[in-house]
Simulated scan of single mutants.
Amino acid sequence: MEDLIIALIGILFFLGMFAIIIVKSISLFDVLYLHFFKKPIYIHFYFKLKKLNYQDERFIKDRFPFYNRLKPKQQKFFQHRVIIFMNDKSFEAREGFHMNNEVKLYISATAVMLTFGMRDFLLPAVHKILVYPDVYHSTINDAYHKGEFNPRMRALVFSWKHFLEGFASDRDNINLAVHEWVHVIQFNSKKEHDISASIFDDTSKELVKLLLYDNIRQRLEDTKYFREYAFTNEFEFVAVLVEYFIESPIEFRQKFPEFYAKVKKMLNYNFAGYKKSSMKIYCFNFI
């Protein structure tokens, strides 16, 4: 009996060491792959996929062209991530706002859209999401806000009126939800140490450095393409550029291909399209 116990302990020790070697090898290969190809070796890997019910998926289809461009297998990944994300966050209504499942879906799907090219998507920098019916008074700077991210409280705040306005037009390059979620990703990428966070943080710095080139600065001054708020600071610059990347990728790529390429690398997907006759046709490709 004693010999059997020793043998079992030996087997467990061997299996444990083997598992550690495998994990270390995968991590090393991941780092090497990132070094040579500048992207994660894999993004989606799940043991069991969760699926949205018919009504929830229809809600996503009706509001996110992004989702409709995905392949069926990728749509399953998207659904799974939305469910996991919703369950991970606390949603709280303020000032009489009615919180329901569709509000949670809309907010969660926006975050999942922005992180769909990233392996780690839960964004632990945010724990709770507060929703007001309209502009609200913020204690951060004693002013009225439409939305904000409070890293100390791990809270993301939205005015629902302005959240919806951001999705009402897909050509004005102003989207409150996208903008604020990008701020969360920015903060998260500086605190976390996963592959996707490193790519986002490093590439966002490269993006800002492009402003040092005289020819690019001259084009910025001549075209005035990006709205003035983009030049408030480097964090707002990146957030605004992602709004343009999502809402008008073709024009963005044509006017500032250098910036477009960096945003594409940051998010790890290519959101480009073209016009044919009077119909807008977009194509979505993973890189």
Rank of each mutant, 00 (worst) to 15 (best):
D3S: 01
L8S: 00
I11V: 15
F13T: 09
L15D: 06
M17H: 04
M17T: 10
A19L: 11
I20D: 03
S25H: 03
L28I: 03
V31E: 15
F36G: 09
K38W: 13
I41P: 14
Y42D: 05
Y46V: 15
F47H: 10
L49F: 13
K51L: 04
Y54N: 08
Y54K: 14
D56E: 15
D56M: 01
I60G: 12
K61H: 06
P65Q: 08
F66P: 00
N68D: 02
R69M: 12
L70H: 04
K71P: 03
Q74Y: 08
Q75G: 08
R81Q: 09
F85H: 02
S90D: 11
H98E: 06
H98N: 06
Y106Q: 03
S108P: 07
A111I: 00
V112L: 05
F116N: 02
G117F: 00
F121Q: 03
L123M: 02
I129Q: 03
P133T: 09
H137R: 09
S138Y: 01
T139C: 04
A143G: 02
A143S: 12
Y144S: 13
K146G: 07
G147F: 12
E148M: 05
P151Y: 03
V157H: 03
W160G: 02
H162D: 14
L164Q: 02
G166F: 01
S169L: 10
D170C: 06
R171A: 10
E180K: 05
V182W: 03
V182Y: 05
V182K: 04
H183K: 08
H183E: 07
V184L: 10
Q186R: 03
F187N: 05
N188Q: 06
E192H: 07
D194W: 13
D194R: 11
D194F: 11
I195W: 11
I195P: 10
S196G: 13
S196F: 14
A197K: 09
A197M: 00
A197Y: 04
F200M: 12
S204M: 12
S204W: 06
L207D: 02
L207P: 09
I216D: 01
T223C: 07
T223I: 11
R227L: 08
Y229S: 15
F231Y: 14
E234Q: 14
E236N: 00
V238H: 15
A239Y: 12
A239C: 09
V242E: 11
V242L: 12
E243L: 13
I246Q: 05
P249N: 08
I250V: 09
E251N: 08
E251V: 08
F256S: 12
A261C: 06
K262D: 03
K262N: 11
V263C: 15
V263K: 13
K264R: 12
K264H: 02
K265L: 15
A272G: 05
G273Q: 06
Y274V: 13
Y282M: 05
N285W: 03
